[in-house]
Design a protein around this nucleic acid. Structure first.
Lengths: 248, 248
DNA sequence: ACCTGAACACCGTTCAAGT
DNA sequence: ACCTGAACACCGTTCAAGT
């Protein structure tokens, strides 16, 4: 240990942090544990990468880099459906990262995904709503995963709570009776709870896409009206009366 | 202090925790700070309420109790629109609580809101999808607020990041250029960022309601088909041919 | 420049001891 | 039963000192 061993690189630190995150979640390791995993003193982490927050940021960036980008020629709904299915796959393997992704917003390097996403929405006709819709869809997906992560932090505790809630919901006075039956049938194993999470994710993402689709119809009408108005104004300006028949 | 002063009650502990939460957020106080606020030793909190998690749970319950329930006779979309606007108002005054509400799911006592909500959805025709839709809507709303809370934890840090992202997004190579202009125009004051949050909340909730509405149409058709099939079967069983003209 | 070891200022939680 | 004071086992972060 005394000789000049090859010095540790920032990349090594971040890679170790990613490995620990896969195994224990982003909140499941400490700076001490990370240093020990690397076989160095804690201060080494601060020297090469920075404080815990900066390590987390680096881990989040690497997770984003693992998300595949759907082919640009697919229809917008398919494109986002594919993206958000992959987002879940990748982030769920790095528990706790999804939460940071929503909170931090688009990281450096996220343009790889954001640009084609915005293009696909603009091509579909979302016009000036494209960005709001992009945020809406990615927020919905990442928030759902963030909640899943948090609930799965302690599987035993989750099972306990599910059973507790199932019992509580049996009581007709509580007004949760539909929820009671539903939970009682699922709260028998952690695998079933997770399967319910997966189903809930797909359902919610589809509803979010429905919401975007409904908006698209409104925006398209607005755009069409605006085009007519512009057209009318320009024809009036040139003195032409050719297109006035569409006026009333 | 040595005489038998009136002993502290659990309610006093929780009330103090709520006050601290309003002022500093749920993550902004420690058990030590709570005890000091009450003028007692830390162990008193554990004696009357339990560990930190249980205090948080009690605070969350009290926040839920403050949410007003819309009149049961309003149409489902209005009902949820009103509810979710009030949810934001109440939870935003208790920073960090929204996150616990999503993660914990319906608390004891939430039946006050869940039951009329389910009734309103069932009356609208959501049938067996009512619960999924209820979860979808409340999850969407609470998750958005949870993200807002987290972003506002450190306003300075948030401003810094917004400006940073605005600069980054100016770079055409990053593929965030629409976002760059948008952010650059808003990242001048924290109030403008918060106004953008409010706008984003309303927009997203409206999209989520659009998504539910689209689903409603599908479910209604399915229910109608099923009714026809049942009707047909019963008429066939009784030998009647009265309603067969709707067959094809 | 890189790394160590130790310290600092915090946490949540527990528990023997007092009244 | 209620409360105190002190301790325990952790954190993230910093920093003088070594090579």
């Amino acid at each position: 240990m005394s000789e000049g061993l090859p010095p540790i690189t920032p990349a090594q630190v971040v890679d170790a942090a990613v490995r620990l995150t896969v195994r224990h979640g982003i909140d499941g390791w400490t700076v001490r544990a990370l240093a020990q995993d690397l076989g160095v003193a804690q201060a080494v982490v601060y020297h090469h990468v920075g404080d815990r927050q900066q390590v987390v940021y680096a881990v989040a960036s690497q997770v984003v880099d693992q998300i595949p980008v759907p082919a640009a020629d697919r229809p917008w709904r398919e494109w986002f459906g594919a993206l958000l299915a992959d987002v879940r796959k990748v982030t769920l393997h790095h528990p706790g990262v999804a939460r940071h992704l929503v909170v931090l917003g688009p990281l450096a390097g996220a343009g790889r995904i954001v640009r084609p996403g915005m293009d696909v929405l603009t091509a579909a006709g979302f016009a000036e709503d494209a960005m709001m819709i992009y945020n809406y869809l990615s927020n919905t997906a990442l928030s759902l995963i963030a909640v899943e992560d948090e609930r799965n932090k302690d599987p035993d505790e989750r099972m306990r709570r599910a059973r507790e809630l199932a019992d509580l919901a049996q009581d007709p006075d509580e007004g949760l009776s539909e929820m009671g039956e539903w939970l009682a049938s699922r709260a028998v194993s952690i695998d079933q709870l997770r399967a319910a999470d997966a189903h809930n994710y797909r359902f919610s993402v589809e509803r979010a896409l429905d919401g975007a689709e409904a908006r698209l119809k409104v925006v398209r009408k607005r755009t069409a009206r605006r085009a007519v108005r512009l057209e009318r104004r320009s024809t009036r300006a040139t003195g032409s009366k050719l297109s006035t028949k569409g006026q009333e």
